[in-house]
Design a protein around this nucleic acid. Sequence first.
DNA 1: ACGATATTTCAACAAATTTGGAAATGTTGA
DNA 2: TCAACATTTCCAAATTTGTTGAAATATCGT
Lengths: 123, 123
Amino acid sequence: MDEKAAVGVFECLSSGVRLGVFRLLVKAEPAGIVAGDIASALDIAPSSLSFHLRTMTQAGLLRVEQEGRFLRYRANLVLMTEVVGFLTENCCSGVAGGCRDGDLLSGRFPGCGSSNPVRESKA
Amino acid sequence: MDEKAAVGVFECLSSGVRLGVFRLLVKAEPAGIVAGDIASALDIAPSSLSFHLRTMTQAGLLRVEQEGRFLRYRANLVLMTEVVGFLTENCCSGVAGGCRDGDLLSGRFPGCGSSNPVRESKA
DNA sequence: ACGATATTTCAACAAATTTGGAAATGTTGA
DNA sequence: TCAACATTTCCAAATTTGTTGAAATATCGT
């Protein structure tokens, strides 16, 4: 997962509405939910929901499948797994071990890669 | 971590600039980087960077410390750990086990909580 | 074929975000 | 005290995002 894809996903999750949609769809796995039902469950205007659904689908976060005159949406858990991977690898310290164990932080970091000379002050 | 806090963090990460700042600071742990150096490393106008830095600090993603006339920023790894937790708990399927193992998906979900009656079609 | 339904697309608009320059604030070293 | 510097705040402009209602598209049941 590259940075651009990650930004796309975070963009999706950075809206209360979209995060709500996604959480709803995660709970609804693997059945998925039809657009109209998402709209009524979350009380969003169909037109507005459609806008968010398209955004999320383009980002790869959702999968759609036509079902008669309904469109059934499902959460893409594979992508979300990759996002968690991206976060732990790139955003939870470069130190090996990831950030699952709490003692990682606020403790002492031996050399921290030796690539970070502490600059006291420039001028 | 509640939904509102999570949205705040995702908002921060939903900008290429801010994600770049955060990744840079994660690599620079635990030394942190002074504002001016972030600006030159990422080639952002100081005024613009300051705007993003404030946003991220308010969201709790960054920690600041004054150092003479410099301001040293550091990534808040604790919060990021919580975000990963939020994601695995709320966005990687309600099924116990989280989303660390790949076979979670695309497989069969026994009953999926029995709370998801598949609706064939409403009308 | 027809009317009802599900969803999307479109256009217009309101609201929020982002940017960069200029000025303000505060710190340093002499 | 003063000049240089780091950073922020303020402000205006450009861009992006989100919402709404109306119209379009497509499918269903009869």
